[in-house]
Design a binder for these strands. Structure first.
Lengths: 334, 334
DNA sequence: ACATTGCGGACAGCAACTGGCCGCGACCGC
DNA sequence: GCGGTCGCGGCCAGTTGCTGTCCGCAATGT
């Protein structure tokens, strides 16, 4: 399974040892030595080598003893099997495309980087499995938001990292479709959208493109030498070129349940504050969101009476839902 | 940054080379050699070594040529930096705890396995960052469902893999809290819940415990020799011990928008079917869910009139929401 | 055509690795 | 307490492997 090829090499053995230590927590020394095809003495030396490399290998003596890879100063290369790799690719993809704005929005960037690493070295058969599952596993409300195509996002990320020219099918804001050849420079996440900062070869100028408006992206082969950015920082450039930040709503409401009960029902989804002691059995909900749908949903999940709903836009929203639901729940046939 | 420790070792250099090749796609040979502190000739030999190990390193000649790590027969050990590791841990954790039932429910198991691997070798400082972000990043409606504590889930997974005895604080179905000492055998995901199949040392019998009812779990130190399962398969045992599968709702409704518009608004969230051509401008929504909240939310996201809502329970649900929202949207003060 | 880059053979010197042996300490079950 | 099992690390002698340098060759883009 993980046997790869047996090379008698010392360094290859060290790599194999690292993999083995990650696959199982405890390994009796003799078994390890047998697996690696060396004597126990040499195994000890290999372990010592790993330790010198900075990977702390704990060992316990006595019967049932053995070696175990512990947490160290830096992360060792992860040896994952096929299933784990697929799960990882899907999870990272979800994190890169779906993650919430304020929370792990910052984590989306590293997630995307990690994803490019994984995908680049992933065997084709695994990539096919990921592609197949991707279709099924959109699974999540964000898909509804017309988020970026994960495949496109991934291609763009790789091209940025590798400084490779791209050909894009792009739909501009006014709906016109254009073909663009660009030198991609950076992917920036702003709000809950991804933007590609690129040098447009057709127009000879910098452009900020929305990834979710990019239908297809393919690598054109040629690599390029990065130009100097028209600003101190990719983020700054993109921010400058985006007109307005998407409107945020600061939601506030009073829930007619005790605070801890509300927290239990809503999880970490909204901030729940205690009200003053006189108002026992009630609490205040606060959340900051771009989508009133989410706010309405949160109120619904609270399963209790609600009052003092705060942006008036949300009240309008609730009224609209209410009317629609009333209609839907009464009419039982088309 | 990634320098670890400089060991003049050959094997360490091979590891470093692997990391470098993953960090950037193209590396000119001379630059690589310089980074590794060896001559180009030795670099070529190192590359050859990697190839012998099964990692396909592509090389292109000519100016702008260089080395690149391609997709191979098996996944090479992933060398991730700190940020990537944190993002990865968060993403995997999300996949393991939140993932939807039918879709990547199957992927939850490998995700959890991968997570145990990562966490086991993750430096404490990174683990702290993950823990810190975890609190913020529940971010998602599932948190509200009282899903399992990721930390507990992780501890259980590690203990299963390492066959280590555990002490659990468990809240039984009737609400009584008990302390249990168990030998954990397998984690099984059924429906959208995690179950721990374990041998209860206090009672001397097998038990199936719900992970989300487990408040704390700590490793007791001792390792044990796995007992024989009372069935062919952990899944079978757990299935047998769970009385009823959680009730599922097969939701159906007619949306008063064209099918493709509905798909655009709902993403992969629900299945949208065309109706017969006479009914242009309408389509049928189908989804299968355990939570009527989600169904209601989906209908709301469709932002259109809805009719022929199908389980009557959902109609009741909608009516309840409607009334609550009507109240909330009119009363603007507590 | 030229420069740049990768490929691989040959060689000599040096460094490292290997296996076998040893005594030591830690730990567990009897 | 005692013996068995296991990890630790020193020592040694033989062998293996690695390294840098030099070389001619092939591929590629300017």
């Amino acid at each position: 399974m993980t046997t790869l090829v047996d090379v008698a090499n010392t360094s290859s053995r060290t790599l194999r040892l690292l993999s083995l230590l990650q696959a199982r927590a405890y390994w009796p020394g003799p078994e390890l030595a047998d697996r690696l095809g060396v004597s126990v003495r040499t195994l000890r030396r290999d372990v010592e080598r790993l330790r010198d490399l900075g990977y702390p290998v704990d060992a316990t003596s006595g019967p049932e003893g053995g070696y175990r890879l512990a947490a160290g100063a830096s992360l060792p290369p992860l040896a994952l099997d096929d299933e784990e790799a697929v799960a990882l690719a899907l999870a990272l993809q979800g994190a890169a495309t779906n993650s919430d704005d304020d929370d792990n929005g910052a984590a989306a960037q590293p997630a995307l980087r990690a994803l490019t690493k994984v995908v680049q070295v992933m065997p084709p058969r695994l990539r096919r499995r990921v592609d197949a599952l991707r279709a099924v596993a959109v699974s999540g409300p964000w898909g509804a938001e017309g988020g970026p195509d994960p495949a496109v996002l991934l291609t763009l990320a790789q091209a940025c990292r590798d400084t490779e020219r791209l050909a894009l099918d792009y739909t501009a804001a006014d709906g016109t479709r254009t073909q663009r050849r660009v030198e991609p420079h950076a992917l920036v996440r702003l709000g809950r959208r991804w933007y590609l900062l690129a040098w447009d070869l057709g127009r000879g100028d910098w452009r900020t493109l929305r990834v979710d408006r990019t239908a297809t992206a393919r690598v054109e082969g040629g690599r390029f030498r990065p130009r100097e950015l028209p600003g101190p920082d990719a983020l700054a450039v993109v921010e400058g070129s985006i007109r307005t930040a998407p409107a945020r709503h600061e939601v506030s409401a009073v829930l007619h349940v005790p605070a801890d009960e509300a927290r239990a029902r809503l999880g970490g989804w909204a901030h729940i504050e205690e009200l003053d002691p006189a108002q026992r059995g009630r609490c205040r909900l606060r959340m900051s969101t771009e989508s009133l749908d989410w706010a309405a949903f949160a109120l619904a999940r609270a399963r209790c009476d609600v009052s003092a709903v705060e942006p008036s836009a949300l009240r309008d929203h609730l009224r609209a839902w209410s009317e629609r639901f009333a209609a839907a729940s009464s009419a039982s046939s088309a």
